[in-house]
């Protein structure tokens, strides 16, 4: 009895482990898979990835200070100083990413983000509370006394110092 079970188990394990050697052809056809396998030889993708990580770090830093500012943990001067510093850094990283992508014109994750923004613009203010709404809310709640400006495009209220409308994207002045 035991012998039979042991044989079955051994055979099953061996077949399962050997399986990838026999069905590899189908996988080779899968291009995105192969891309992910071979990305080491590709310095461009590699560099993009590093830049992308850098960008992520900066963006989450911006989110953090905006949150902290909204909760009154950062003074206005400190917030603006740090905010400008981060945003300039982020801008240069983004520029670098764009340049690399221009030179190397092929499908990159950046395109997804662009289309994401488009779809975001279309849906506009969906019930899915978005981060921007949160930030705006924090800001406005914290600066009730400060002067407000209205967006000429969509009519939403913003801080005096804002450079663009966070609802519709139009420039403010």
């Amino acid at each position: 009895m035991d012998i039979i079970i042991i044989l079955i188990i051994t055979a099953a394990a061996a077949i399962y482990i050997a399986l990838p050697f026999f069905i590899k052809k189908r996988d080779l056809a899968n291009e995105t898979l192969m891309n992910s396998y071979t990305n080491k030889e590709d310095p461009v993708t590699e560099k993009l990835k590093i830049l992308d990580n850098k960008k992520e770090t900066l963006l989450s830093a911006i989110r953090d200070i905006e949150f902290d500012y909204g909760l009154g943990k950062l003074s206005k001067e400190d917030f603006e100083e740090l905010n400008n510093k981060y945003k300039l850094e982020a801008a240069s990283v983004l520029k670098e990413i764009d340049e690399i992508q221009k030179q190397d014109d092929r499908q990159t994750p950046g395109d997804d983000i662009e289309s994401e923004i488009l779809s975001y613009r279309k849906t506009g203010d969906s019930d899915d509370t978005l981060i921007e709404e949160e930030i705006t809310a924090f800001r406005s709640a914290n600066q009730n006394n400060e002067s407000k400006i209205k967006c000429q495009n969509c009519g939403s209220e913003h801080r005096a110092g804002d450079l663009f409308c966070s609802k519709c994207g139009a420039k403010l002045n």
Binding site: K55, E56, I62, A91, I113, Y120, L130, L163, F164
Partner: peptide, 15 residues
Amino acid sequence: SRQEAFIRYTVSDHD
């Protein structure tokens, strides 16, 4: 991704 897209968008506009 959505939230990231948005921040990216605000930042590049800010740029």
